[in-house]
C-alpha cells in the first residue's frame, strides 16, 4: 500500500507537511485514524499501483477548486471527505 506522501507526481504544489496537516484535520472531522485516511486517499490516486494514475482526480482541481491549490493529493482528500458524506 502506497503512503500518500510517497506518491510521486509532477504537479504537486503542497508540501508533505501541508498534506499531513490536511489529512490530520480531515481525520479529526471524520473520526478516523490519520493513517487510515492517508491510505484511502493514496488509493484514490493510484489504486494501489504506486503511481499517480487517477486522471479524473489528479488534474481535476484546475480552475475549479481554490481550496486545494491544484495539488491532486488535496483534491483526492476532498473526494474522500465528500465520499464519506454520501
Amino acid at each position: 500500500m502506497t503512503k500518500l506522501t510517497d506518491i510521486e507526481g509532477t504537479d504537486f504544489t503542497a508540501s508533505d507537511e501541508e498534506i499531513e496537516a490536511a489529512v490530520e484535520d480531515a481525520a479529526a472531522d471524520l473520526g478516523m485514524a490519520p493513517e487510515r485516511v492517508s491510505e484511502e486517499v493514496a488509493y484514490i490516486l493510484d489504486s494501489g499501483s504506486g503511481r499517480v494514475n487517477n486522471e479524473g482526480v489528479a488534474g481535476a482541481a484546475v480552475g475549479s477548486n481554490a481550496d486545494t491549490h491544484d495539488d491532486p493529493r488535496l483534491e483526492a482528500l476532498d473526494v474522500f471527505k465528500l465520499r464519506q458524506e454520501l
Partner: peptide, 12 residues
C-alpha cells in the same frame, strides 16, 4: 466534475 472524480476513482 465531482461525478467524474468518483467515477475515475472506481475506474482506477
Amino acid at each position: 466534475n465531482k461525478g467524474f472524480q468518483f467515477i475515475s476513482t472506481d475506474e482506477g
